[in-house]
Structures are given as C-alpha cells and as structure tokens.
Design a binder for these strands. Sequence first.
DNA 1: CCTACCGATCGGTAGG
DNA 2: CCTACCGATCGGTAGG
Lengths: 216, 216
Amino acid sequence: MLKSAALAETPPPMRRGRPRKSAEERDESQRRADLVRAAAQLFRAKGFDATSTRDIAAATGMQSGSPFYYFESKSALLLAVMVDGMAQAQAHQDAALKALPARASARDRLRALIRQHFEVLLGAGSDFIPVMLYEWRSLTALQREQVATQKDSYEAAWMPSLNALHRTGHLQARPAVARLFIFGALNWTVQWFDPAGPRSLDDLTEQALCLFVGKA
Amino acid sequence: MLKSAALAETPPPMRRGRPRKSAEERDESQRRADLVRAAAQLFRAKGFDATSTRDIAAATGMQSGSPFYYFESKSALLLAVMVDGMAQAQAHQDAALKALPARASARDRLRALIRQHFEVLLGAGSDFIPVMLYEWRSLTALQREQVATQKDSYEAAWMPSLNALHRTGHLQARPAVARLFIFGALNWTVQWFDPAGPRSLDDLTEQALCLFVGKA
DNA sequence: CCTACCGATCGGTAGG
DNA sequence: CCTACCGATCGGTAGG
C-alpha cells in the first residue's frame, strides 16, 4: 500500500478529523521523503545512471537493500523526485501569480514567472527540477507521460502573458515557439549559473526580460 | 602510438609528399572513425552511462574487446566524439561566416550563425554536438578543459555581432549574459525539435532572431 | 583485431 | 528496516 502510494505520489489524504497519522506512518513518510531528497541531490550531482541505490541508502543512513522497502524500483524513485519537484514548482508558481496585483501588466506577470522559475531552478536545495530536465531519458514511456502532464500545465500558465505581449508588439516571435525558446534559455542556466558568483537572480530576471521583450 | 593520437585527436599529419598512408593505416583510421560515429549515435540515443562498449563494438561489427585496441578507455571515446564534433562545428561556422558578404549587417551575421548552429545541432546525422552538450558530466576535469577551449572559441565568434546589435539598441540585454541565454535557447531545441515535423530550420532561425533582436 | 576471462558493481529479493 | 545473497552486466586486459 505504501508502495503504490509512492507510485501515484498523491499527497497524504488530509482528512478533517484529528488523529491523521500514527507515529509510525509519519515516520515512514518522513523516511520516504528523506530518500527522495537524497536521491534528488545525488541524481543531480552524478546523474541517474551513475548513482547507485546503495549511494542513496547511505546518504539516508540506511543499508543497501532498504530503499526497496519504500520504492519498488530505482526508476520509481526517480519518478518520485520529478513528480514531487513539479508539484512544488506548480505550487510556487500559483502563489507567485496570486501575489500579483489584479491589474498587473503582462510584462509584470512574465517577470514574476521568470523570477519564480529561477528560484525553483537555481535556489538553494532545488535539485528536483534540474533532475527532471536532464533525466527524462531514464523514465519509461508511461512515467514520462505522467510528468509531461504536470509540465504542460506549468508551462501553459505562461501563454496568456506571452500572447498579450505579442499583441502589443513587445514579443516579436510567435508565442508558441517563443515559449520553447524561452524555457530553453531559462533552463540552460543550470549549466552555467553560479549561485556564489556576482549575478543575482533579480539581475538575471531583468536581463532575460530585456532579451525577450525589450526594455520597459 | 595510435592510442596517444586518439587522445590528442590531432588530424592526420597531411604531409606534402605522395604516399601519405599505407593501406593499413587508412584502414585503421577508418575503423577508428567508425567507432566514433557509432559511439556518438549511441551516446546520444541512450546516454553515455547506459551505452556499453559492447554496444559500440557491435554497432561497428567488432567483438567486445576490440574498441580498446583503438581507444584506451570508454571515456577517451567520449572525448573523441566531443573533440571531433567541436572541430566540425568550428569548421562549419568559419565557412558560414566566410560565405557572408563583407559588408553584411550584424543582423545578417547573427542570422547566419544561428542558422548554421541549428544545422550542426539538428541536421541529419548530427549526434556529436548534442552529446557534447549533455554528457559533460562524464568527462574528467582534464578532458573538460580541452573541450571547453574549443567551445569558448566557437562561442566567442558570436560576440562581435551581439556587441554591434547591442550598440544599435536591437539587442537590449547585456551581450555577455545574452550570449548565455541565446545558446541556452538554441541548444535546448534538441529536446523538442522534430526534424519530421512541420517547422523548418529556416523558420526556426527567423523566429529566434525575432525573439532576441526583433523584426527587420 | 578475436578469445577468454577477471574483478567489481549493481538492481533487486528472500526471509526475518 | 537489516542481512545475506543472486544473476547479470560492465570496463578492461592478456595473450595471441
């Protein structure tokens, strides 16, 4: 039962009543979350294939066979990293849009989207999305569909802003292709951005905005 | 001797005199090129770690141990793919720039650079550069330096055009950051572009140009 | 180049 | 969750 929940990755049921989980349940889901976090970090640092389930176990303080108590396969663990990551990214994006004034301009909306995307991509402890971007290949076709649905919904939220900016002539490429190029430009930053370097995420955001839709 | 040549990856010496290579030498360098091409294709399709040297041997019609007669390690084979790929890309880029009219505008120069980059990235049988872009991690630090030098030189050729377009106000982001974003946008196309799809490389080029520096 | 082989590592499982 | 283990695969080598 725990194992199938791991696959479907639905958040815990959140019933209204008081005693939600026994102590053991909380322990188990905590251990499970530890595994996902350690996996995300290792997959990002060394790649999926180069990371052994023993590495992940050790990073979580377990013995070699124990991750398979929580996940039915190494690949299910990878899926969990991606699904959790996309769910977090979507939540952040929703919050960022909701925090915007109702009459914010398309430019301001795009800025907010770019800024929060950088946060999720380059912020401290953000290994989930980079893993999703660079380890597609290691998913089965079925798993890929599942994550693709989340990704499509995440990216679709950008289209209203892009369409509006295209209408006003600020975005000069066709919005559908522009979206692909823009995500490419932003996602590629994980290859070169140095959090310890001189550039801030705010600066990066402003430069990206200038590049795609010009100044002011 | 063959092995060290494989590491340094210098093209065959090309002496002036007549009998350049014996038949065996030509055979050997042909077999070597076969290995590099097969490796590039497999590394791209399945990734470096998921490709065994046995896969590569089989794709070249050899037995399992034979690739090690030509390359001292699997990693040396990966390096060869990248070094050969960058050398080809650089040659194409030089040719594309030389084919331009002497008084071509900065916009035309950038268009030519983008167009030829797409060719090298997405054209038929172009597995070398995608491998270089997505298998960095599998190189040793020393190997990485070697390829980085080639890549720096390749990308440096874009700066005059970007600087000029910045001066005239067509490129609104700082050229140094713009270059990073632009290569991200272009390189990311290997993730989504379908050569069998409706979009042509010419169309893609024009849309990219519009996105970064606007129309006309 | 092939044949035959080695040592190491890996994902995964049984049984508790 | 741990212990103990299996079968498979892999990079690489010796010896011709």
